[in-house]
């Protein structure tokens, strides 16, 4: 006799992902679903899908979902969480969605310390629309709108959202993880769990930036794409925890921000 030690999490539906072969969205979906299972919150979770390849995320999770306009998922999640503070609310956003068109929404959700969890998938490109340059696209990286490679004088330099947002007081937990091998996926899982833990503990905004691949638009095999991620993205997007509020499980070596003093009002 034998026991099953790995299976599809219950928070995932049986629908087959529409993602391209080898796209790490599938891994990240599974990690989120595993966290939902392990916290036992499937029946009280509401997800917010964004615009991009993960636009159809609502088909893949066995939880209530809202589909948000491009970049607006943190605002939609804010509305949900404020109306239903005891539910678990997460957004699932790509880098075009979160780091480009949705910068205002993510910055201010983080600033307010909205008690939501953001899963931020950074694959340095626009996947759904066919491989255009993202704000996260690496210098020299070839995309359909940075032909010949992204040049800083034309298109600036890659944006580091985790570092930016960790300067704010609102976030309780911000980490960047990767999917380029199984050990990193295991670490990513721990970060996703910690982010949900922050929400369950009502500590405020949490975000996990997950470095991800886009084999199709990068023009590589899935395994080549993982190697490309490791060699090229890690130097620009260092992994680690950028913000950890005291009280969250695990090492809390990362810095916390100094709370602003309140002014007296009559």
């Amino acid at each position: 006799m034998s026991v099953k030690v790995f299976e599809r999490p219950k928070a995932l539906s049986s629908v087959i992902f529409h993602y391209c072969p080898g796209c790490t969205h599938g891994i990240i979906h599974r990690l989120v679903a595993e966290a939902i299972d392990e916290f036992g919150v499937q029946g009280k979770t509401i997800g917010v899908a964004s615009v991009g390849c993960s636009v159809l995320a609502y088909n893949y999770f066995n939880v209530d979902f809202q589909q948000a306009a491009h970049g607006r998922a943190p605002a939609v999640a804010t509305g949900i969480k404020r109306c239903l503070p005891d539910r678990t609310v997460f957004t699932y956003q790509g880098d075009g969605d979160l780091a480009s068109i949705g910068t205002a929404e993510i910055v201010h959700a983080a600033m307010r310390g909205e008690n939501i969890t953001v899963i931020f998938v950074n694959n340095a490109i626009y996947g759904m629309t066919g491989g255009q340059m993202a704000p996260t696209t690496l210098l020299g990286q070839n995309t359909t709108t940075s032909p010949g490679g992204r040049k800083p004088e034309r298109a600036g330099r890659p944006i580091r959202m985790s570092e930016m947002l960790s300067q704010l007081e609102g976030p309780a937990y911000i980490a960047r993880v990767s999917t380029h091998n199984a050990a990193q996926v295991a670490r990513a899982k721990q970060a996703v769990k910690k982010a949900f833990q922050a929400q369950v503990d009502k500590k405020g905004f949490s975000m996990v930036e997950v470095l991800s691949t886009c084999p199709t638009n990068w023009g590589m095999t899935p395994n080549e794409a993982l190697k490309w991620l490791e060699e090229n993205m890690l130097p620009v997007y260092p992994l680690g925890e950028f913000k950890t509020e005291p009280g969250l499980p695990g090492p809390s070596a990362a810095k916390t921000t100094v709370p602003t003093r309140e002014v007296k009002t009559d």
Binding site: Q66, A75, G79, A104, E105
Partner: peptide, 10 residues
Amino acid sequence: VSAINMVYGG
């Protein structure tokens, strides 16, 4: 923009 999307969520 954000306000109306919060209303969508709510």
